[in-house]
Structures are given as C-alpha cells and as structure tokens.
Lab assay of single mutants.
Amino acid sequence: LGPKYVGLWDFKSRTDEELSFRAGDVFHVARKEEQWWWATLLDEAGGAVAQGYVPHNYLAERE
C-alpha cells in the first residue's frame, strides 16, 4: 500500500468530501492533489475506517 502517514494536528472537516481526524491518527494516502490528499483513515489493526480529503500539511510520513 505504500507509506503510511500520521496526523500532526486535529482537523475538522468543512465539507462532505473532507475527513475529520485527530492528531496521531494513521492514514494511507491514495492520491496527492496539490493542497488536498485523498486518504483512508486506518484503525489500529490497519483496517479502513473512512475516506476523504485531508490537508497535506496536516500529515507527516510515518517512519
């Protein structure tokens, strides 16, 4: 699936296409579209919880 990303700060969605998340949440990014990335929010087991657009500057690649 490629690298995983972690949320740096809490983010509250403003549209139906955006995905709310908390700092520390883990994502798989499917598409990078300039300022907004289409991402899947993952649970602790790595299963998909939700999908939506997230601001790229709120995520960091997980080491």
Rank of each mutant, 00 (worst) to 15 (best):
Y53F: 09
W9R: 13
W36I: 06
Q35P: 06
E63Y: 12
L41K: 10
L1P: 13
G7W: 06
R22E: 07
A30G: 12
R22D: 04
T15C: 15
V29E: 02
R62N: 10
K4C: 14
E33Q: 08
G52F: 05
V54P: 00
V29D: 01
A30W: 15
V54T: 00
G47C: 14
A48T: 10
L42G: 01
E17S: 13
G46Q: 05
L1E: 13
K32L: 04
D16C: 11
E34N: 11
Y58L: 07
V54D: 01
E18C: 11
K4S: 10
K4W: 13
R31W: 14
E63F: 11
L42R: 01
L8F: 02
A30S: 15
D16F: 09
P3D: 08
R22Q: 10
A30Q: 15
R14W: 08
W38C: 07
E61W: 08
D43K: 02
E33R: 06
K12H: 13
L1H: 13
V54C: 11
S20P: 03
W38K: 00
G2C: 15
E18K: 05
V6M: 06
S20F: 04
W36G: 08
L8D: 02
Q35M: 13
T40S: 08
L59A: 02
L1D: 13
P3F: 10
H56M: 13
L19H: 01
W36F: 12
G24H: 03
P55S: 05
P55T: 04
V6T: 06
K4R: 11
A45Q: 14
Y58H: 04
L42M: 06
R14V: 09
R62F: 15
D10I: 08
S20G: 06
A60C: 11
V29P: 02
E44P: 10
W37S: 01
T40D: 02
F11A: 01
E18L: 10
G24D: 02
R14D: 10
N57L: 07
D43I: 05
V29F: 03
F21G: 02
G52N: 03
S20I: 04
E33V: 08
W9V: 08
S13H: 04
A39W: 05
A45K: 14
F21C: 07
L59I: 05
Y53A: 02
N57C: 15
G47K: 15
G7M: 05
V49Q: 07
R31G: 05
K32R: 09
R14P: 05
L59W: 04
F21R: 00
T40V: 15
R14T: 14
G47H: 15
L41E: 00
T40Q: 07
W9E: 05
S13N: 07
L8G: 02
L8Q: 05
A45T: 13
Q51T: 14
E63G: 12
G47A: 14
L59S: 01
A50F: 05
P55G: 03
H28P: 01
G24V: 02
S20T: 10
D16P: 14
K12D: 13
D10N: 07
K32N: 06
A45N: 15
K12A: 12
Y5S: 00
G46Y: 05
S20Q: 04
L19V: 06
L1Y: 12
A30E: 15
L42H: 03
A23Q: 09
D10R: 05
E18W: 14
V54N: 00
Q35K: 13
V26E: 10
G46R: 03
G47F: 14
V49R: 08
W36H: 06
D10E: 07
L1R: 10
K4F: 15
Y5I: 00
K32Y: 08
G46V: 04
E17P: 05
A45H: 14
D16V: 10
V6I: 12
E44I: 08
L8P: 02
L41S: 01
S13T: 02
Y5H: 04
L41D: 00
P55C: 08
A23N: 04
E44F: 09
Y53G: 01
L8N: 03
P3I: 14
F11G: 02
Y5E: 00
K12N: 14
V6C: 11
D25R: 02
D43T: 05
K4P: 06
F11W: 13
A39H: 00
V6S: 03
L19F: 05
Y5P: 00
G7K: 01
E17I: 12
V49E: 03
A23D: 01
L41P: 00
E63C: 14
P3Y: 09
D25M: 06
F11T: 01
D25A: 09
K32W: 05
